[in-house]
């Protein structure tokens, strides 16, 4: 047992999982703050299912999964955000429609191929390849760079889109940036934590952080820190107990959220 763990922790599998997981946790939580506040919390869920369907179709038709799914998921993200603004179908309903339809398409397309549905739905940390690491580092670098460059405008578009538009800013551009970055993060992230659980990375850290901090900067920073913390802890715990890492992340996130909510309640009661 100890030898097994030693190999796991010193080997490249663990290093790969560590790099990919930390970077994804940071990206997802940063984008998550804006998505949760703009009431698009479920978009990660919808996109991951589309990503699953796209990968299944790509494998079934013999195309490169990533090259096929990435543009498709970006397009979906873009349309979902636009749809929610303009159309008669409300955002939450639109996301639910896309989400379930994609899952159905994926399930049918995956039949007869050698796709391991379970690893797509629940992810597998140890299945992270060298290629995944390179891709994740690239995606995270772009996401973090854009996030830092546009940080003040991302705050503005999240807090008061109308004011930004009235001042000659272009909220549509920054919304599109958020949508595209979310799409990329989801596509890359679902290989690690799975289609069913990727939205937990987007949802939980911001929700917990919002209960602890009152400024936007505080929430963004805390979300990133909490996200990395729960990933690292869950990774170690899951390897020791030999259970699903993504499930561990979600349960730990839930625990942190519970703690944060309790803290908030106590604070309010005391004040």
């Amino acid at each position: 047992m100890l030898d097994y763990l030693k190999i796991l922790f010193t080997g490249s599998i663990f290093a790969n999982a560590l790099i990919v997981g930390v970077l994804l946790s940071v990206c997802a939580s940063l984008l998550g703050v804006s998505l949760v506040l703009k009431k698009y919390a479920m978009i990660g869920d919808g996109l991951s299912h589309v990503s699953f369907a796209a990968m299944a179709v790509a494998v079934a038709t013999g195309q490169s999964p990533l090259a096929f799914s990435l543009p498709l998921v970006m397009l979906t993200a873009f349309l979902l955000l636009r749809l929610s603004e303009k159309s008669r179908v409300k955002g939450d309903a639109a996301i639910a429609v896309v989400s379930t339809a994609a899952l159905a398409v994926g399930a049918i397309a995956a039949r007869g191929t050698n796709i391991d549905i379970e690893s797509y739905l629940f992810g597998s940390v140890v299945a992270v390849t060298r290629q995944d690491v390179i891709l994740t580092v690239a995606v995270a670098a772009v996401t973090l760079l854009l996030y830092v460059l546009f940080y003040n405008r991302i705050f503005a578009v999240t807090f008061d889109e109308t004011y930004l538009a009235a001042g000659g800013g272009h909220p549509a551009v920054y919304n599109a940036v958020i949508a595209i970055l979310t799409a990329v993060t989801v596509v890359v992230g679902m290989r690690l934590v799975g289609a069913l659980l990727i939205s937990a990375l987007i949802l939980f850290p911001p929700l917990s952080a919002m209960r602890l901090f009152k400024s936007f900067r505080g929430v963004v920073t805390a979300a990133a820190v909490l996200s990395v913390f729960s990933f690292l802890t869950a990774l170690v715990v899951s390897l020791f107990l030999d259970v699903s890492t993504s499930a561990c992340i979600v349960l730990l996130d839930l625990l942190i959220f519970g703690g944060a909510a309790l803290f908030r309640t106590l604070q309010k009661g005391g004040a």
């Binding site: 506040l37 807090f159 919002m210 400024s215 900067r217």
Partner: peptide, 10 residues
């Protein structure tokens, strides 16, 4: 979550 300073600066 937004502080007064963050809102005014925007």
């Amino acid at each position: 979550p937004a502080s007064v300073r963050e809102v005014v600066l925007s």
